[in-house]
Each structure stands twice: as C-alpha cells, then as structure tokens.
Nucleic acid binder design. Structure first.
Lengths: 225, 225, 225, 225
DNA sequence: AATGAATGAGCGTTCATTCAT
DNA sequence: TATGAATGAACGCTCATTCAT
C-alpha cells in the first residue's frame, strides 16, 4: 500500500481525538477508545445503519452487555463518536490558523489544498454525507456539525478580512460560507471512490482561482444582507 | 399556507414522475402512485430509515401484504422511488435547456437561480443528503444519482462552451463540474431549515458572480487534465 | 445425458397419470396437467416446502390468480398431485402382475428388480420420503399412501401364495409386508444421490436371495398372528 | 398411562443429550435444554414445519428474542437439535455393543429386537421420516444422519464378521446395510400409529430369521462389488 | 469492568386465500 | 379462463435496552 493510498484510505486511531472521561479509570478510557474506533470503522465501511450496538461490540471482540456498560444507549455512543470525530477535525484546523508569514492569497491556497485533500480521504467522504443526512432530522447533530463548520470558517474569514478590509464582518462571513460550501459540495463528486475523484486537481485549480478572484473583485454592495 | 411555503415545503404528486405499468389496471397505477408518494413523504419528513415497508403501507392506509404485491422487495420500492424522483428532476432540467434568445451569461444566471431555488425546497434539502449517503455503499444509487447530475450539467456545459469557444470539451466539463458541485454544497448550509437559509440571496449573488468570473477569466492552461 | 441417467433422473409428463376432470374443457385439463407437472418438479427438486402456490404458478409461467382458479386451495393441489403420483405408480404395478409363464421365484426376482430400480430414480427417492413425513400428520395422505402400498403388495402376495400354498392369507401378507418394507428402506441408503447408491447391486442380490430363502424356509408356526 | 404407552409415546428429557456451553450459567443450560425439548416435541407432534422459532419460543413460555439469543438462527437450532437427537441414539447403540458372552446369533436377535422396539416409539417414527426428507435437500443433515447410521451398523458388522469369517469387510458391510435398511423401512409400515403397528411381532420374527438365514447361507461370490 | 440472560418492538419477506375485473 | 389487487397471518431475523450475575 502506497503512502498516498494510506493517506486517503485508512482509518487510524489518530483519526479520533477525545479526552479521558473525568473520574474514569485508565482501562475504561482505553475501552471507550476502542469502541469509538470500531464504531467509526463501521460507519465508514458500511454506513450509519451498520453501526449498531451489536456490530460495534462484535467488532471490538466484546460482549453487548459490556458495550452498554460504557455507552448505555446508542445515542450516547453516537454523540460520543460525533464529539470525537469533530475534535479530530479541529486538530486539523488549528494547524492552518497558525500559519504566519504568508500572504493572504497563499494562505487561502494552502487552506483549500488542505480541505480538498481531506475531502478525498475515505473517512471524510464517508462520514460527512452520513452527518449531513443526520442533520436533517436530528437538531443535536445539526448544531454540532455547524459548530464544526463555523470553526472551520474562522481562519477563512480572517484571510478574507485581510484581503478585503473594506468589507464588514457579515460580508466576509458570506464569502467564507460560499467558499466552504463550494468545497464541501465536491465531496459528492470527487471524494473517495467518486466518479470524478481523478478530476480533483482540475477542481482544485479552478476553485482556488475562483475563490481568490471573487474575494478580490466583488463589490461590497453586490452582497445582499 | 403561503405560496412561498408551498413552493419550498410541500411534497406534491408532481414531485414524482413514473409511467404506468403495462397490463396493469388504472387502480393499480393509482396505488403505486400513492405508495411512492407516501414513501417520498416519509423519506423527506423522517429520513431513509423511516421509509420502512410497514410505515409506507400504514401511511397509505394499506396493508403490508398489498404493498409487497406492488413492490415485492424494499429494494424494488427504493429503486422505483429513485427512478420517479430522478425523472421529476429531469423534467425541470429540460425546461432550462430550452431557453432561447439569451446571452450565455443571463442563461447561466437563470440556471443558478433555478438550482439554488430548488435547493431550498424541503424535498431537495432532505432527499439529496440521503442519496449522497446511500451512494457511499450502493453502487446502483451512485450510478443513478450521477447520471442525473450528468444530465443536469449538460446545459451548463453548453453555456460554458458558448462563453469560451477556446476551451476543449474536457475543460468545459471541469468548469461545469465545479459550478454544479459548488451549488450542491450549499444544500447543507442554506437548504431548507438550515442555519444559513436566510443567507441564500447573498450566496446566490456571490456564486453567480464567481461562476461568470471564473469562466470568463480562467486560462486554458490553468486547468490540469 | 445417457439413457441410464435419463431413466433415474428426469421427470417427464409420463411420471404423472391423471384423468381429465369430468365436465372440464380440454384446455383446462392441459393446464391442470401443466400445473401438476410443475408441482411435482418443485417437490422433487426443492422439497415439499418449495411447492408453494406462488412457486408452482411461477414455474408454469402463470399468475397466482389462475392457479387458484384451477386449484382453489393448496390442499386441493396437494391431493390432486398425490392422486396423479399414485396413479402413475399403479401403472407400473399393473405391468408386473401380468407376467405369465414364470416360476414364482423368477417372478419375485423381476418384481424386486423393478422396485429397486424405481427406488433409484430421482423422482421416487425424493417423493417418497416427503410422503412418509406427511403421513405422520395427515391421515388423508396416510390412507392414500398405504392404499398404494397395498396395491403394490398384491402381486407379491400372489407370488408368495404360489410358493407356499400351506400358508394362510395373513401369513402371506406378513411376508409380503416384510419384503416391501425391506425394499422401501433402501430408498434412504441407496436411492438417488444417497451414500450407498453404487452398492445397490449388492443390496439387490442380497435382498432377492434373502426374500426367496425366507419364503421357502419359514415355518407357518414361526409367524405370530 | 401404562408403562407400554410411556415407553413408545412420551418424549422425555432423556431423549436428548447435549453438553453445557462453556462459560454459560447453569440457567442458560437449562433454558437451552428446555428449548431443544420443546423443539423436539413440536417436531414429533406436528412436523418439521411446525418447529418454527415462534412456536418453539411459545412452547417454552419464552419470548422470541430470548430464543434467538440462545439460538441466533433457525439453522443453529435445527443443528443443535440434530446433534442432541443423534447423541441420544448413540447412547442406545453403545449399550448393544457391550453385550458379552453371547452367540453372534443371539446378539443379532437382541440387536433387531432393540431396533424394532425403538422404531415403534413415537419419537423415532416421527423424527426419522422428517430427517429422511431433509436429507434430500440438506447435505449437512445427510451427513449427520448417515454418520449415525454408520455407527448403528458397526455392531452389526462385528456380529456378521463373527458369523462369517470367510467374508471380507465390504461383504459384511453390504449385509449389515441390507439388514439396517430393511428394518428402517418398517418405520413407515409398522411404526407408531402406522397401519401395521400390531403386526410388528410378525415382522420381527420374519426379519430376524431372514437376517440370520441370509448371513449363514449367502455365498461370498453372490455379493457383487 | 464485564458477561449472560431476557424482553419487546420492529424489520423485510413469503404465504394461502379471496375477490373484482 | 385468466389476471390484478388486496388481506391477514406467519416466518426468520436484528435491534436497543434492561437487569442479574
């Protein structure tokens, strides 16, 4: 397996990030980690429906009774997994923010590159559509996911504000939202094993350029409130 | 219920399109119509998992046995619904294609307006994320959905080709793909009952302008193969 | 396919015998024939459970509704099939009875040969165990099957009576019963695709000889009432 | 209920034999015992089809969910029952083998007596025809059943070898097979509630004598390979 | 911390049967 | 004759959950 394949394909423990439960023993924490990892693996490989308590337990080589000890209800498990997944993405975004000594344009390019690269990973391609469908009927998931997106847009808004000091915060936010949404949309077309996966380089070139152009050229009064 | 609400909210029979079965009675066709409509309603209102054979039958005021008479397996029902939903969107796209006497720019604007308006409807906001998540593990759905997207991009490619006769077909296709993906991504952020639903006008303005700009300005050699 | 394989393997229309229903049209009779043939085929190939109304109809290229027109209930079908199957075996037995100019010993040998050859056919190996299991809980089947066996034993009893004029009818019947039961038992061990199918010649030699010996040698007073 | 009726009629826990599951509680083993017993009872009283998961659970006064906890699939249940039934018969056969100080003839007589007595029990009369019909379409059952028969023939082959030291192993096996098959066939005619149940004594007398005669008198060269 | 046992609800599917067309 | 439509019951199975051990 090449490095590239590994990068886009495999799910590793590092794909999840979560703090030890306060007051829990070390072993319990390890077990929780194992459970969440198995759950993510199932979610990625076989979809949300396959992430049942039984299958997660089986994937951990653990009995159902023990799983329910650590996560009494399925909702508990789902939310813990959501937290862990989101936390793992926040690690990524914090990396971008701390990129000093860059022109805003270059910073934006790096941002897009990183996001679009992530979109092509198996994990992101598989997890996010599941989350999107969940957001339609679960307000809790809706909140958490958009909280994540808000954090993801923060560095973007900062870049835009630097490029266009004449725009107000709401206008910068709208531009950042457009850019973020635009890239998310590519998941479906050029994500992992999607029909236009090989066209991602073209999409990235077009997108990056379109984003810089629109930020540079749009007039403040052309953005409705 | 206001016109606007109706437009974005309600599911009507017109949201589905499918041909009568050969050799069947009129009553049978009506029943199948009723079933597909109920299935779509459940999908939109409560998600894919809620679209169970039992609930669909109950929603039709029909016994389970009769549902399985018309759709012997759940897969049959799902595929028939997929066909009907896709057919209903194809009706929409055929309308766009036949827009003569327009500058390509204006034509593009109308196209974006129509797509983004559709994205805000309850039906589209709810159905497509379910489809996206299905495409991850069901190759049949993947095929059908991307067949639909291909048809949706066709008028877009024609417009781009008019605006940029110097670009080859593959380059036009890449631009169309970017535009289409970009708009699809907005479903999650500004679709029906999504957090940025009220910001759709801003997104539309930015997007439309960004799309026209990038088509106009990108150099042929800046689009990788 | 060799003659031998055909003989032991295939189900042909000739394997069923049944008279036209009185007052029925010719076409209806043909359809009934077709149905019964398909039912037998299913019974032989996939067992009694597979002989459902739906599968029989499908195997005939006919709709369920039409099958229920010809056989309103499953029991009707089962009993008609039972009749037809039994009638087809009676054709065979009548052939044996009319074997003049034979010593009783030779007649017995021919009888055993014919029965054991029949046992090795796919049809008999498959159908009779199903019938035997049905007889345990369906008195109607029990009656019909033992009626058939009674008819099958008739020529046997005649042969025995010729060989042992000193025995009374009940004693001859007991010997015939032993011989018949003995051969039926071989179905399970040396019938079609059974583990000892290739050992049938040895079984036949042993059985034939054992039968002749016991008839010849047993004392009347050694057969309890 | 007289002793005789009890002997031939009732199903008791002793009719099944199976080991406790490792790691399981005592209660769990009791439950599995109860389930297998109920399943056998249903099989004997109402046939294989009646042995459904629901009916077995109901017969145990247990919920379906708990039955599937102990036997996740119907196949698991069927195979466990098959194992337990077979194990119970093996207990019987081991008893026969250990019969010292007998002439082979007397030993054979005892063997036949025991088998034919067993055949008249409700359990054997009902269970074996179901097994025979299952062997036609389930290779697993075919294997298990013929494994049992092989074990049942072992003492028979030993007896025959003693009576006829001049015969080789294959010839002894053929004779044992004939005897075993011959007696099995009587199930259908003279088993529990079968039409010739009262004639079993006559059949036993004839059979025992015929078996001893054929073993004694057959020439080695009269048994084909 | 972990397993064993049990419940109750729901799933997709198959079936025999009835009746209108 | 034959098909289309509908019902009601049962099937094997999976599931989230609860609780005793």
């Amino acid at each position: 397996m090449t490095e590239l394949l590994k990068k886009h394909n495999a799910i590793s423990v590092a794909d999840l990030a979560f703090p030890p439960r306060e007051g829990g023993y070390a072993k319990g924490h390890e077990t929780r980690e194992q459970i969440l990892h198995a759950a993510l693996q199932l979610l990625v490989d076989h979809g949300y429906r396959a992430m049942s308590m039984r299958r997660v337990a089986a994937a951990c080589g653990m009995k159902l009774g023990n799983l329910t000890y650590h996560f009494p209800t399925r909702e508990d498990l789902v939310r813990a997994l959501l937290d862990a997944v989101i936390a793992s993405y926040e690690v990524e975004f914090s990396a971008i923010s701390q990129n000093p000594d860059q022109t805003p344009e270059h910073h934006l390019e790096l941002y897009c590159e990183l996001v679009l690269e992530d979109i092509r990973t198996k994990k992101t391609t598989r997890v996010f559509p599941e989350l999107w469908s969940l957001t339609n009927h679960d307000p809790f998931v809706l909140d958490r996911v958009h909280e994540l997106y808000a954090r993801a847009r923060a560095p973007l808004e900062a870049i835009i504000a630097k490029m266009r000091p004449d725009l107000d915060q709401s206008q910068c936010a709208a531009l950042a939202l457009f850019i973020s949404a635009s890239m998310e949309g590519m998941t479906i077309f050029a994500g992992y094993e999607k029909p236009f996966e090989p066209r991602m380089p073209a999409l990235e070139a077009i997108a990056t350029r379109a984003f810089i152009d629109i930020i540079r050229s749009i007039a403040a009064e052309d953005i409705p409130d």
